[in-house]
Design a protein around this nucleic acid. Structure first.
Lengths: 225, 225
DNA sequence: AATCCATTTAATTTATACATTAATGAATTT
DNA sequence: AAATTCATTAATGTATAAATTAAATGGATT
């Protein structure tokens, strides 16, 4: 007997998924406020699953719940970005070190190398969207292969928190040319099982790209993303 | 006009606080299952605030919600501890580096040094409880002074996840004699604004104490804490 | 016009009712 | 006896009603 691919998702899960998607897609813009009744109308369901979704997303940091004013999509400030990148830098560097310590399979190393190749190609074609996707894939592999589920969930959360800012600055940031060198150096360090080296290189990389992003936000006065 | 010290907490907040306390205090033991109705009876309130508390605590990782079986206090396995300590090591080392980079005030440095002194004293009196409290205080300061609210919340969450295991192994672990040297070295590195050094020392410290803890769990066959 | 206070209103918080679905187990068939 | 079916039960998921709380309003008074 074949069981259907996935258990039917509950309204709560649907509310969570849809509301979060609307926020990440900037369909609900930063600073926007909605009371529970409005959100549940938007999602076309009662207040209970809506409320559960709002509580979860608030805990994750994308919205805040203000008494009497419902939810508010949290604008990302320069200071927020600073905090988020400090943490992302720490977590991903940990992941890089773990990959080196635990060791990756040949297939896993290949996948990472392929991501770097894809980034190179996209960059030569001036396709920033494509580049960002390959870059994201590299970072996802790094964390996935570190073999720590909690770490994976954590990083995903902080990536989400900075998603809107990253999408926005993608258009105005300088070409990420030396980014690729960093990435292949990390892969090499992992392959050589040199965890300190892997950690250090990735740390420097994330620190630099984070600082670049923060400077962009500052320079362009983008304080309500 | 003086307003009361804190806004009256909602039943949801009370449910969250009390339920979590019962879990951390081991009043609800690992593996224990309770359905929503039982939990709400225990907390003496309706299912709604109870349910919200359960959802939040489940998101934090202390319990899991199994369809039709209510909540279950998650036992901590050796693998869980491994994951948790890998993350804690990464996050706290990041905090140490941030403290050094940003620089601490004389008062903050004093507080950290005092914690080390208290650990020393407690250790000389063979008071492990007292030592653990001072140790916890040191770690809390480290994160607090790194001036990153999100980081603080994160670390607190992972400390909580490992709380029951730490309490249990406190009685059987070897005396933490060289722990104090590590701590004062970290403070010194921070004072000298040497972030790489601060990070490295604390990293080694956490890695060692984590490994010690994991070995204890393994040796004693403690797999359902 | 400004301030104070009472009233109304709006939103949330909590409780409860209702709907849905998985688990259980007894009855029936093989 | 084992397996299968089907009704029953129990628990959750969802909707809504009731209670609470905080904000806003507006009229009276200064």
């Amino acid at each position: 007997m074949m069981r259907s691919a996935k258990a039917k998702e509950s309204l709560s899960d649907k509310a969570y998924r849809e509301l979060k998607a609307k926020i990440l897609d900037n369909e609900l813009h930063a600073g926007q406020q909605m009371i529970e009744a409005e959100v549940s109308q938007l999602l076309n369901m009662s207040r209970t699953p809506t409320r559960e979704a709002m509580l979860k997303i608030a805990n994750e940091g994308l919205i805040e719940l203000k008494p009497r004013h419902g939810m508010r999509v949290k604008p990302i400030s320069v200071m927020d970005m600073q905090e988020i990148y400090e943490i992302l830098t720490g977590l991903e560097s940990t992941a890089a070190a773990l990959c080196a310590t635990k060791g990756l399979t040949a297939e896993q190393l290949d996948l990472m190398r392929q991501s770097v190749v894809d980034m190179d190609k996209a960059l030569n074609r001036d396709d920033l969207i494509e580049w960002a996707q390959a870059d994201e894939r590299f970072h996802r592999y790094l964390v996935e292969f570190s073999n720590n589920d909690r770490l994976q969930i954590l990083v995903a959360n902080f990536i989400e928190q900075s998603h809107r800012a990253r999408m926005l600055t993608l258009k105005i940031r300088p070409k990420p040319t030396n980014s690729n060198k960093d990435h292949s150096d990390v892969v090499k360090a992992i392959e050589e099982r040199n965890s300190e080296q892997a950690r250090a290189i990735h740390h420097k990389h994330r620190e630099q790209s984070g600082q670049m992003m923060i400077n962009l936000l500052k320079d362009y006065g983008l304080n309500h993303i």
